[in-house]
Design a protein around this nucleic acid. Structure first.
Lengths: 336, 336
DNA sequence: CTGAAAGCGCTTACAG
DNA sequence: CTGAAAGCGCTTACAG
């Protein structure tokens, strides 16, 4: 039935439908200036020929790829999933496609995912990872950095959750619960630095001594585990721990268990990110929600506005995080 | 410095380097038939003009996109990550790019991710999700289905882990440990059906009664939790549980804990997938490794061979899984 | 080793 | 509402 022959082109469709190829193009792009009869004929021909327009030709001829590129750091670091959802929602109206790439996906053909996107002529770029100095940033298309990062990209928009505020909220929550010996396990990236700040501020404001254990360079369960071990050793009086994120919190839970401490009876634990993990029956982790979906919506808006007005000044948008109460916190066992 | 003007094209580079544009094309594609002096000049011009070749033009003119598309079901379902790594490794030599899309990413512009890939003129397609009947499968490019699925795609290659064998290995391991009351929590997808088979076989072979709890339609922690609750209620004599995958195993752990059962002392638990989750300090989950990276390597090979010889018959490749022993299993508390 | 020419499959004005 | 023409930025033979 289907021949392995040459692919159908717009010419074939035009011929089969008995119209010119411009007309086919109009139908494809949903123009209202096409008679019903011809539209039907074209659609039938498309179906019959199993025709699919060539994205390459459309991009080349139209001068626009209609896609925005998103660079993430790692598929296992799930915070980007909700961001993507928000982006998709926000970009829907405009009909922009989304393409995702992590650092390693095409490392065999291109050192830098940005290069690939730039060659693809994306309309805009979202950098949802720590920007590197080797990246050559485009200045001809909108670029928005998503999330709090250590490095700035001059001229780019920025959309991030207020990580300092989130950590402050979490710490104040523990303090309100009656805790005063609260430790913090922190990592080495952009959000970590801000969360550390928020934690420290809240502790000092309450007149308590902050205990920060910084584990470099990652923020995995393993790092959380090691950090918590150190905390429990150096500060056995700790009755609560704020972890740098949910993965690290999972490590904290493991360290507590291995030390014979019950959560939340002996020690309260708070995570950060409201990841799928935190909502499981096994963890029931109280955490901070960064509202990444809303973040994605904001990023979409920034892209759209910059596309409409390329000369507008760079924007910085900050979202307010909120605390999600679940089952990992309690009043301290012994109120001193 | 950088003008927001028109993008540099191959013409601009040729002119700046004082060569013809064919020569620039040769340099870009790494041809050896270019003198050192001219190559240097071209490279300098590319750098100076911040030139990036247009992927669209290259695809259109060259008649090949040099990319293979991978359809996954969901970014939160992490089994594809290792698959991607293997694919990347295997495709590296050939210089093929990888593009990933899940079902929802571009749902606002295209109902089906396949359509997008087909418009992009990918060289091959990897379907790492349950094929749907609405998908129009191409017959002109290699298609390989990765993982065990319920639906077949006629003419496509298949690469999967032997899920029945994996479940049998896990069950036999528990039996060897002395367990005879072993339950299985299963889901509703392709791998689930096979794992169920393997479990049942092993139980019957040992002369024990299989207890399967099937929770539809998903295979999440929540489903594992509910399934285990039912198992513990209906079969309180159970001393071991084989979960359909690691996420479900996590739910089993939670259900055991909520029932006051210790793992592994009171009940042994085995997962499936060897996901990042299973290796955490908190879970220390004994699990089955499907060797997804090797699977990716196999898929790459299938693609390459089909590209070289389009008429070769469809292949089915099955990999042997292996058991990963960690800390969630023990001999049964009371040997009956 | 290098250059001129044709063509890939579309979109976009521009006439009718 | 519809068609003929030019052109997008490359690659690929094909001559030299």
């Amino acid at each position: 039935m289907a021949q392995r022959s040459r692919r159908a082109t717009i010419y074939d469709v035009a011929q089969a439908a008995g119209v010119s190829k411009s007309l086919v193009s109009l139908v494809l792009r949903g123009s209202p200036n096409v008679s019903q009869a011809r539209r039907t004929a074209v659609l039938a021909a498309i179906e019959a020929l199993d025709y699919r327009p060539s994205q390459a030709a459309a991009t080349l001829a139209g001068g626009t790829s209609q896609t925005v590129g998103v660079v993430i750091d790692d598929y296992t670091n799930l915070w980007f999933v909700e961001l993507l959802r928000g982006l998709q929602e926000g970009l829907g109206e405009a009909g922009l496609r989304i393409a995702v790439s992590d650092r390693t996906l095409n490392a065999h053909v291109q050192a830098d995912p940005l290069e690939g996107f730039l060659s693809t002529r994306v309309e805009a770029l979202v950098v949802a990872t720590e920007p590197t100095e080797t990246m050559r940033y485009p200045n001809q298309i909108p670029l928005v950095v998503a999330g709090n990062r250590q490095r700035q990209v001059p001229g780019s928009d920025l959309a991030a959750s207020d990580d300092a505020l989130g950590a402050r909220l979490a710490t104040e929550y523990l303090i309100a619960l009656g805790h005063r010996h609260i430790g913090h396990i922190s990592g080495g990236d952009g959000p970590s630095a801000l969360r550390r700040q928020g934690y420290t501020q809240a502790m000092l404001a309450a007149g308590y001594e902050p205990h920060v254990i910084t584990v470099m360079p990652q923020t995995t369960e393993e790092h959380g585990y090691r950090g918590a071990q150190r905390l429990f050793e150096e500060h056995p009086e700790s009755t609560a721990v704020l972890a740098g994120n949910d993965s690290m919190a999972m490590g904290v839970l493991a360290a507590a268990r291995d030390r014979g401490l019950l959560v939340p009876q002996d020690v309260s634990v708070i995570g950060y990110d409201n990841s799928p993990l935190s909502g499981t029956h096994l963890l029931r982790l109280t955490t901070v929600d960064s509202r990444n979906r809303d973040l994605g919506l904001q990023v979409a808006e920034q892209i759209l506005s910059k596309l409409a007005e390329p000369d507008r000044a760079a924007q910085v948008i900050q979202l307010e995080p909120r605390l999600i109460e679940r089952g990992s916190c309690h009043t301290p066992r012994t109120t001193l």
